[in-house]
Every structure is written in structure tokens, then in C-alpha cells.
Amino acid sequence: MLASDVLVAQNVGFAIIAAIMVVGALRVVTTKNVVHAALWLVVVLAGAAAQYVLLAAEFVAITQVMVYIGAVMVLFLFGTMLTRARIGAEQDLNNKNWFIGLPIAVLLLATMLMALNDGFKAEKLPVDAPVVTTQQVSDQIFGAYLLPFWALSFVLLAAAIGAIVLARRD
């Protein structure tokens, strides 16, 4: 196996980040502390951003950091606080459904892995792909995908206004 075929650094990087993400994700769904869960989620989201960089998607990675870690996480933390969750561990976060949830998750995972394995087998990603520039993305957003962008602005507007109406005290 030639060295150029195996990008050791990238593969190692992927593996480490992926492992952290999986652990983080598992903690998100198992931890007994809501604030911890939010922090673990930050780990996963940051890991995802790192993976995006590995996938030559820097703009998306930056967006991920800004939108998710910058905005969404703050929302989550506010949400946690406004609903007066205790900062410490809580007992009542889960219901009794683990015996349903676990088999479903495992079954779904098995199915998806089976299909992915069958589909792409050992297909490699191109190694010398250039980073997608922001211009390329913007060309698309303001070209072919202009109308969804227009619609997206309404989505955000509706979400913002609706959320305000629902959440405000009156």
C-alpha cells in the first residue's frame, strides 16, 4: 500500500474525532445532567465541524461553528435555564422506554450499516479534492437554489415570530 494512498494523518484525525463524537453523542443521550448533555452536544457539534474540514467543506464547517455552537447552543442553554432545570444531576430525565429504544436503534443501525456496506463497500474519497470555496457555494445559493433561499428567509421569519408569540408571557 503506497503511502500516498493512505493519508495517515487524516485517517488518524478522523478516527480520533469520530471516537470523541460517538462518545459525546452517547453521553448526550445518557447523561443525567441536562447541562452536561448540552456541553456534550457541543463536543459532538464541534467534532462534526472538524469532520467537515476533513471533507473539504470549510465554509460549512465555519457555519456549523457559528450557527450551532454560537446560536443553537445558547438557545439550548437558555431553554434549560428558563425551564429551571437543576444544574446538578436529575433522576427524571428518561422514561421507561429503553427496552424499546435500544432494539430499535440497534436494528436501524444494523440495517443502515448493512446497506452502506453493500452500497459503497471500500470506495475511497478523492484525496486531492480542493476546498470548496465560498464563492462556489454562493453561486449556487444565488443561482440554482435561489428560490429555496427565498423560502428559507420566510422559514426563519416565521420561526422567529411564531416562537416569540408562543414563548412570550402575556
Binding site: A151, L152, V155, A158, G162, A163
Partner: peptide, 29 residues
Amino acid sequence: LLGMVMMASSRDMVSIFVSLELLSIPAYM
């Protein structure tokens, strides 16, 4: 309604996804 009207014409996955969210999110609220 705008989401629905756009859904009727959307012929790619991004448009369909955004239209779907555009018609759903207001409906949730």
C-alpha cells in the same frame, strides 16, 4: 400556504425540503 404553493412546483430535493419546512413550521405553531 406559501410553502404549499412552492411545494407544488418544486422539482429538486432542496426545494422540496425547504418547502416542506416552510409549510410545516408555521403549522406546528
